[in-house]
């Protein structure tokens, strides 16, 4: 399977998102440490959907052209007003540790955030094999 979608509406879905990402990463053939990184990044992104946006869609994709994995978190939540700030260490709006998004950026190889205030956010994170 090249693509798995998980509707994140409650906390149990976060673990499921992480499990699916782990499975996909294993299937693609990532090393153990990177599988751990990817599973944790997935957990982080799915937790963001649950905590900040009241739920959303989480996707795990197997990238074909250049072997790798992509995690996509889409929501219709409040959006991120200041992306620069959200990527700063120690900045959090919901009482978190403030290292979720910057952490994901470090765990994965690439990350882009597309966010519109009041409309929602799409976070895409990729890791190359």
């Amino acid at each position: 399977m090249d693509r798995v979608c998980i509707q994140v509406t409650d906390e149990a879905n976060i673990a499921e998102a992480s499990r699916q990402a782990r499975q996909m990463a294993k299937m693609i053939g990532f090393a153990t440490v990177r599988i751990h990184y990817i599973a944790t990044a997935a957990s982080e992104l799915a937790a963001n959907l649950f905590m900040h946006a009241n739920g959303g869609l989480f996707e795990v994709c197997n990238l074909i052209n250049r072997p790798g994995i992509e995690l996509i978190a889409t929501d219709n939540g409040p959006g991120i007003a200041d992306i620069e700030k959200a990527l700063q260490e120690g900045y959090s709006t919901a009482g978190g540790l403030g290292c979720g998004l910057p952490g994901v950026k470090r765990l994965m190889d690439e990350m882009d955030i597309d966010s519109r205030v009041g409309q929602g956010t799409v976070v895409k994170a990729r890791a190359w094999l």
């Binding site: 440490v33 990184y37 470090r106 765990l107």
Partner: peptide
């Protein structure tokens, strides 16, 4: 904490 877990935590900055 596994070796992978330790590296992940460092990456996360915890």
């Amino acid at each position: 904490i596994s070796p992978e877990g330790a590296q992940t935590l460092t990456k996360l900055g915890i």
